[in-house]
Design a binder for these strands. Structure first.
Lengths: 192, 192
DNA sequence: ATCGAAATAGACAGATTGTCTCGATAAGGT
DNA sequence: ACCTTATCGAGACAATCTGTCTATTTCGAT
């Protein structure tokens, strides 16, 4: 009292915050969202209850912080792939495949649906729009190369990709994931 | 006390149950899942708190009952469309379009993601499998007519459809929904 | 060495939970 | 019409959780 976990206050606060995020998610997956309390989170995180309230006001805020962390990690990774040298279509394929693998490893359902249930639609909308926006940028490049269907806007096609690839969460293998990416890509191409 | 809402006990219990389902969902959309309590539900439903516990043990159970009701309604409607006379491909199109419109009217996010957060994955998996199973049956028929791609199984393609069409929830118009259906269908066709 | 920051056990009042009782009322059956 | 069965719910109870606050201790930062 107080017992810092690292050498500096800044690092300590960072580690505590991350611990809270991970612990909360662990509890949610064990018990379900409605059965998780701030008291349990504090106890399992190894901090005092009053201390927990200094970091987050409620369970909902914790889950959103965790969601934000995830989305920014994914975006960073996908953006790197999208910025690699090469033709637009192959970069698009790489990004879609990476996103599909993220969905695959995340499992059937992930944090992206949080907003629906936690009264913060705008948070999830923003995540989908960020990922969709990244896809859209690539789709515009593919369109300029004449390799994209013209009857549907790149924006709508981006949304299609974001949703279609979530099917990867329920697939049994990475081969199946790559087949899903192929199916999705074929929906994007100019139709004869 | 007791004040029945209808002439028979059976009908009364049915109406009370439906009222609880709808009221709970209303509260969830207003306040978010974590802020809804049994006390609030009872009060807004116009029944006593002890009475509410006679119908449902907790908020989670109420939400699942509502989810089940929705899924069975959708399945009934989609199955009717799939059983209409006509070629397999046009029936598939009708079913996919109907499902997309359901997603569109449901909004960006619906009840199907409940399981992720409420510790009951198997419930949601079952819903997706039921809808996916219906799609799959039609896809098998389309395959027999030689109108389906052969490099991906009808099962995986069904899952692709279920997920891709959820993009309809974020689209601005029914025209956009129909374009989404077209994009999805083009992913299913044999590729040249 | 000094000061500001951080942690936390414990307390407090309020809210909710899950359960239960018992009296009142109404449906159901004969 | 009468009796039985079913239902409701106000109120009570004990337990749990919440959000806030205080006083004390410890530790990083300078």
């Amino acid at each position: 009292m107080p017992k810092l976990w690292t050498d500096t206050i800044e690092a300590h606060r960072h580690v505590v915050r991350e611990t809270i995020l991970d612990t909360t998610w662990g509890l949610v997956t064990e018990r379900g969202l409605l059965a998780v309390t701030m008291s349990q989170i504090a106890e399992r995180s190894g901090i005092g209850r009053a201390t927990l309230y200094k970091y987050f006001p409620d369970v909902e805020s914790i889950l959103f912080a965790r969601h934000e962390r995830h989305v920014s990690e994914h975006l960073r990774h996908l953006a790197e792939l999208g910025n690699q040298p090469g033709e637009a279509e192959s970069r698009l394929r790489a990004v879609l495949a990476a996103y599909a693998l993220i969905c695959h490893h995340r499992g059937q359902h992930g944090t992206e649906e949080l907003g629906a249930l936690l009264h913060r639609h705008e948070i999830v909308d923003r995540a989908e729009q960020q990922i969709g926006g990244l896809f859209q940028g690539l789709l515009v490049e593919v369109a300029e190369a004449g390799r994209l269907r013209r009857d549907v806007s790149p924006e709508e096609l981006a949304s299609f990709c974001v949703h279609a690839l979530t099917a990867a969460g329920g697939l049994p293998s990475e081969d199946a994931v790559h087949r899903l990416v192929e199916v999705t890509l074929s929906g994007l191409r100019p139709q004869s």
